[in-house]
């Protein structure tokens, strides 16, 4: 009962919502960069939305079924499926996929985003300190504390019952309120905790000028390029460390910001000009280098309202996906759920 990793590609790891409660020991949250995609991947497979998934960066991931296996693919993916009889099919993301024994899925590229999410029906991996999330630097989570590598076999509960049910395909859906293929995003951010370490001019620049995501982006953070942000004094460039969270916008002495992501260290010594609202960190996590980023200044109440609105939209969409899979793919029902025919892109304006 398992799925074999033939090739991990650039970086593929098992992730779920990450660890809580261990930051006081220096252990970061880790977890999936884009939680909405994880939820869609699990909704496609009719399983709990917090089930661990494979997060894969760029192309190259190749998996083969040792026993029949149902998967889901979420993201702007070009992929190939090699069937048992040797035929090769080209497929895209936003769908389920049944692999029979010996069949293989190969992700060629992740298109307009830097990562994609692969859901695995009934994946059976034990939690490590409360989470399956891989944090390889400290040997935490995943299969054995590591990123996935060639030859790994992911254990799966029981044997997937693969009947005559066809694969399901849904419309692409990047993120509530975002057009697919966007090369420019607006992230809501709350000034602080160290906004007073910067000049007024720096704060205004940060919230009014566009920044670009550089090549220096990984699971830990994204270094941005754009107008330089001036610290109020030399002494404000390097502070006694305080807590870092996903979304913290650190500004080191050079003056360009770094937005921390899921694998953020628990503490850091650069002042933080602002904190990106939690729901929007997910969006930044999937963006490619070169994407234009603007920061919209909000207060804490507006920040929370935004997170609740995104949560509502993601939850609604997940339920629609789930309901669609649950029906016997009756086309009338599908139409009534607004999930086919290109309708989903217009979902849930917020």
């Amino acid at each position: 009962m398992s799925l074999r990793i033939e090739h991990p590609g650039l970086l593929s790891t098992l992730q779920d919502r990450g660890r809580r409660g261990l930051r006081y020991l220096g252990i970061p949250q880790a977890g999936i960069g884009c939680e909405p995609w994880m939820r869609f991947a699990n909704a496609l497979l009719q399983q709990p939305h917090t089930s661990a998934v494979i997060e894969t960066f760029e192309g190259g991931l190749s998996v083969s079924a040792l026993t029949p296996q149902r998967l889901s693919i979420v993201g702007d993916v070009d992929a190939q499926v090699t069937r048992a009889n040797g035929t090769v099919e080209s497929i895209n993301g936003w769908r389920t996929l049944c692999l029979l024994s010996g069949e293989r899925l190969s992700i060629k590229r992740t298109g307009r985003y830097r990562c994609a999410v692969i859901g695995v029906k009934d994946l059976n991996v034990s939690a490590h300190f409360g989470s399956v999330a891989t944090f390889a630097k400290a040997g935490l989570g995943g299969l054995n504390g590591s990123a996935l590598s060639a030859g790994d076999e992911l254990p799966v509960h029981g044997s997937a019952v693969l009947g005559s049910e066809p694969d399901a395909v849904i419309d692409p859906y990047l993120f509530p309120g975002e057009a697919l293929g966007t090369t420019q995003v607006t992230l809501k951010a709350v000034p602080g905790p160290q906004d007073d370490a910067f000049t007024d001019d720096a704060l205004n620049r940060f919230f009014s000028h566009p920044y670009r995501i550089t090549q220096d982006i990984d699971r830990m953070g994204a270094r941005l390029d754009g107008p330089t942000l001036t610290h109020r004094s030399e002494a404000h460039r390097d502070i006694v460390s305080d807590a870092l969270l996903p979304g913290s916008v650190q500004v080191p002495g050079v003056g360009t910001p770094i937005v921390m992501l899921a694998d953020a260290n628990t503490a850091g010594g650069y002042p933080k000009i602002a904190t990106v609202v939690s729901a929007d960190v997910a969006l930044l996590s999937v963006c490619r280098p070169g994407t234009t980023v603007r920061f919209e200044r909000v207060g804490t109440d507006a920040a929370r309202a935004h997170t609740l609105a995104i949560e509502q939209a993601v939850d609604t969409h997940s339920k629609k996906v789930s309901a669609m899979i649950h029906t016997d793919l009756d086309s009338a029902q599908l139409m009534s759920l607004n999930l086919i025919g290109g309708v989903t892109n217009a979902l849930d304006p917020i």
Binding site: V190, D242, S248, T275, A303
Partner: peptide
């Protein structure tokens, strides 16, 4: 001190 919608910082000193 504010830190987005997921945290609040209680700051005592800077040394």
């Amino acid at each position: 001190l504010n830190a987005g919608d997921t945290a609040l910082i209680a700051e005592f000193g800077d040394t």
